[in-house]
Computed example of a mutant assay.
Amino acid sequence: MAQRNRYWLLCLMQIMLICAPLNAQAEKKIGVLLFSEEARYHESLKGIREQLAKAGYKEPNVRFVVGNAGGSKAKAADMVRNYASADYALMITLGTNATIAVAKEIKDVPIVFSMVYDPVEARVAKGWQSSGTNVTGTSPMIHITELLSRLREIRPVKRIAALYTPGEKNSESQLKELQRVQSRYGIKVLPVIISKKEDVEQILPEVMGSVDAVYFSGSSVIGSTIPPIVELAARAGVISFTHLEDLVAEGVLFGLCADPYQLGLLAGKKAVAVLRGTKPSSIPIEYIARPGVVINRKTAAASKVQIPKALLQKAAKIYN
């Protein structure tokens, strides 16, 4: 009888050991902060959650508390204070401004981000190989020289209007990159500040008459005013281009873009590693090495721009 009791006790202990990770996982709470409603953030979050689900981190075992700052830095700061006062196993952030806000306030919870263009320039990480802090994640960064080379395949340009918003670190970083290579490519980059929607109508009509191309940075202000800017550019026969796929989907003529969903899957793998005990600082921050050409044919036709057949054949996605 004693031997039988010991046998059943051992069985019970084995069952408890197997179930223990599930019970622990059921107690996990993950905070999620998107900076705005822009499509790339939702696509990236979709990839993150799919990767977490594959590893067993999904509802109802895990509770996701999702917040959206609606493009407001002030609202993001308020929301972060609420996150900081609760008990989270992990914070997930989408966008540079959301990540800056969370990393500034929360130091004792691991943070995994996606869609942060230059985390070092934004001062959320000390380096790409190691953040040196409690963060890791993925970036939509591309080689700006490759973007300009693809632009040349469509048409040689001399003057580029770079639309950016001061105070948005990602937008400022992208402007700096363009300015750094302008002499090598024999182009003149004209910084154009778009701080509010009204600037589009007040500033851009004159700008479009003096440039060959217009670059859309990752500013949330610019992202909320795509159709009128694209219409002005098309009317002037100006090529619009970017590094963000969702902006091409909304009307920008072409882009060299990292797929936000794929960036999300990559960030999701990092999130799984963190939840399993790996320190964020030991997980390198990554970007996609081979971004794809994305083209909006409708805008090309409206702009009377002929896309070379060779570039069309290279395209990862074409929006009609």
Rank of each mutant, 00 (worst) to 15 (best):
M79Q: 14
L247G: 00
A20I: 08
L204K: 01
M115Y: 02
V116R: 00
V200F: 06
A162C: 15
E38F: 06
G292K: 14
P21T: 04
S195V: 04
A122V: 05
E201N: 11
S240W: 02
N23F: 10
L148F: 07
R180W: 00
L190F: 05
G237P: 02
K169Q: 10
V230E: 01
R150T: 05
E105H: 05
A258E: 14
A24P: 00
N23D: 02
L266I: 11
Y7L: 10
P21R: 04
E286Q: 15
Y88G: 06
V221Q: 04
C11I: 15
A310M: 10
P284Q: 12
Y164F: 13
V124Q: 01
M16K: 03
Q129C: 00
S303P: 11
S36Q: 10
S282T: 14
A26H: 12
S44G: 06
L147M: 13
R40L: 13
P119I: 01
V189H: 02
V181G: 07
T133M: 07
D108S: 10
V200W: 03
G264H: 05
K169C: 00
A2W: 12
F254E: 04
G95M: 06
Y185F: 15
T138M: 13
M16D: 04
I318K: 01
S220R: 00
E231I: 00
M141H: 11
D78L: 12
F113M: 14
F216N: 10
P260T: 10
G264K: 04
L266E: 14
P260K: 09
A310H: 13
L163N: 04
N5R: 13
P228R: 09
Y215T: 03
V65F: 06
A249M: 12
L90N: 08
I142G: 09
E43C: 05
K75N: 06
P166E: 12
L33T: 12
I106T: 02
T136W: 12
E206W: 05
K104E: 15
L147N: 08
K279S: 13
V230R: 01
S171T: 08
C11V: 15
T99F: 08
M79R: 08
I295A: 09
V207P: 05
A213T: 11
